[in-house]
Write a protein that binds this DNA or RNA. Structure first.
Lengths: 227, 227
DNA sequence: TTTACATCCCGACTTTTGTCGGATTTTTGG
DNA sequence: CCAAAAATCCGACAAAAGTCGGGATGTAAA
């Protein structure tokens, strides 16, 4: 699964966030990037670490989270293949605001700050790419914070269902269990379980081990509004 | 109060986020920037607007917020003189994720995207400044989201007290009323009022119209931990 | 000054969220 | 395949947050 046999240069050209850079710039990055593979549940870095590499997720799936002293977690976002993360640590010289953990086996490139700053200095469009990436994160965090504050658990769950559904069906993957989902929604498994039960009893959804089926889109939307 | 009589150029040189740029670049920005003054409670822009100017707050105080259909507000952050905002709208071509409202009379510079992109293209350190600004916002939002999810209202209030206090005293400004504070903490005035009452009864703080005094720092810290 | 309006305060109550014990069921590792 | 660990489910309960009515106080405009 390690891509070390393929030329690094070719890999870098396929990084979404570097699209448009010329071969020389890419070669410079390629020379300095490091490759790492993380097993499921492995910690990529901890909240509070001073980690100055920029990360690029080649394959796999991660979660970014904060946790409370009592062990409860708030998942801030899931990180999917093709995304970069730790812009804060890499570019702003601050400690990581969140912990990153692998949900599946994941392969990442580590790009050292030095190389990155060089490229940004020479190729402003790379800076614009990074700015756009950070803007996406800001938008996501604004939505998360306001939803946590202004919506009920039920409304947040319904919203997630409607977003994730592909034609009224949400397939359950390995990491889409109630524990992870609850941490994402900012609650605990028991409460989420109760919500699912109530929506099922109301005839709005149908859930089994494999998938969740949306039975009444309008009803769900209506119910999410009053909450 | 309008700075139009002072040369724009001089103003721009004093923008923190442009420090280090050469006079020509500043002159270009100066030529294209617009000046606006907003009265207290005036809306600078609405969530969902496509507003492509970058804003610089020259003087005054703003809040950035999201509001629910029922009127409840979640304040995301306060914006103080010298800060820039709306990087998302200006640089990522997305609609504003939040509404901005003036708490006091406020004077702002509007810098059009075009001019900004030009400067970023020519001066990479300007891009780095903006990236650092956005990193600050991400850090703030991560803290807000996780606090909303993992801490009680009381713990959030105590945290805010301890942060704001200058030598055990927090002066109450015009906008530091319980309504604004509650919106900042992600709750409602009644609940905040109750928290203040309980902390007062427990002998940990002392609050009157003018100021809040911290009586027992250790006690507050301890109480914030269990919550 | 006087009225109108916003703020705040408080107790009683409701809703939402979280906790706990204990019973199943499912998944994982050997 | 089996045993241990993890996840789920559920009812009863506890805690936190929010709502409501109503009164007191303060502030700003007429």
């Amino acid at each position: 699964m390690t891509p070390s046999n393929a030329p690094l240069l070719k890999r870098l050209q396929s990084f979404d966030f570097l699209r448009g850079l010329d071969p020389q710039a890419l070669a410079r990055l390629a020379a300095s990037a490091t490759w790492k593979v993380f097993a499921p549940n492995a910690v990529i870095f901890w909240e509070g670490d001073a980690e100055s590499n920029l990360y690029y997720l080649q394959y796999g799936l991660l979660k970014a989270l904060r946790s409370a002293p009592d062990g409860r977690e708030q998942v801030l976002r899931f990180i999917q293949a093709g995304e970069i993360f730790n812009e804060v640590g890499a570019l702003a010289n601050r400690t990581n605001p969140a912990t990153a953990i692998a949900l599946e086996e994941s392969g990442v490139w580590l790009i050292p700050r030095r190389a990155l700053e060089e490229v940004i200095g020479a190729y402003p469009q790379a800076a614009m790419q990074i700015i756009e990436n950070m803007a996406d994160k800001i938008v996501g965090l604004v939505a998360l914070a306001s939803d946590l504050s202004l919506k009920t658990v039920e409304a947040r769950y319904i919203q997630l269902l409607l977003e994730q559904a592909e034609g009224d069906v949400i397939e359950r993957r390995r990491w889409t269990n109630q524990t992870e989902l609850a941490a994402r929604l900012g609650t605990v498994p028991d409460v989420l379980s109760r919500v699912v039960r109530e929506l099922t009893k109301a005839g709005l959804i149908e859930a089994d081990k494999q998938r969740i089926r949306i039975l009444d889109r309008a009803g769900l939307t209506e119910r999410a509004r009053n909450g």
